[in-house]
Amino acid sequence: MTRVVTEKEALIVEQIPKLRRYARALTGNRAAADDLVQDCLERAWGRFHLWQPGSNMRAWMFTIMHNCFANTMRKNKHQRGLVPIEEWSAEAQIAPNQENSAELRGVAEMMRQLPTEQREVLLLIGLEEMTYAEVSEALEIPLGTVMSRLSRGRERLRALIAQPKAAGVRAVEE
């Protein structure tokens, strides 16, 4: 059944682990993330003939991922493509004995509160280690917009993390 993947196809396949990592961080949920990756891959296979050899495959795959995510968000508008907060933090890969595990859980939870557009930029740069120019290409936004989303997102995340646990505690108590 399983046929050998061609060299060209391998270019897509080798992106999959990073697409999954990004999707997990973006959606905060394993199942939603893998659905998103699956959507993205189907679209990529269908459009593969449009990809121009020599151009940036990673940026192209993340463009498709971004469009798929936007579609998902549009379909369930009220959910904003997000999962409940308890699932969100539970899905983060925190080993119970990991150092700073409470802090990490905090970051995962606060990321959820950022606007999607800021979350995308923070993760593409901070987690996927894309250059600013690659993010501009992947999200099809000007470099200046990348910078302002990055700056605002990081500052907002910083403020959310710094604030007393009030928000988180209230959410649990209610």
């Binding site: 993947v5 682990p17 893998d34 189907e42 890969q93 990490l104 923070l122 740069i125 987690l127």
Partner: peptide, 30 residues
């Protein structure tokens, strides 16, 4: 923040791929 993202999500890279995920889904223009 950047270190936290890695600490939270890098382990996904090691997870085995769901069945069939790496298989091309549509006929390719060979």
């Amino acid at each position: 923040q950047n270190r936290a993202f890695h600490a939270l999500y890098d382990s996904v890279l090691e997870e085995p791929l769901p069945r069939g995920m790496a298989q091309p889904k549509q006929p390719q223009f060979d």
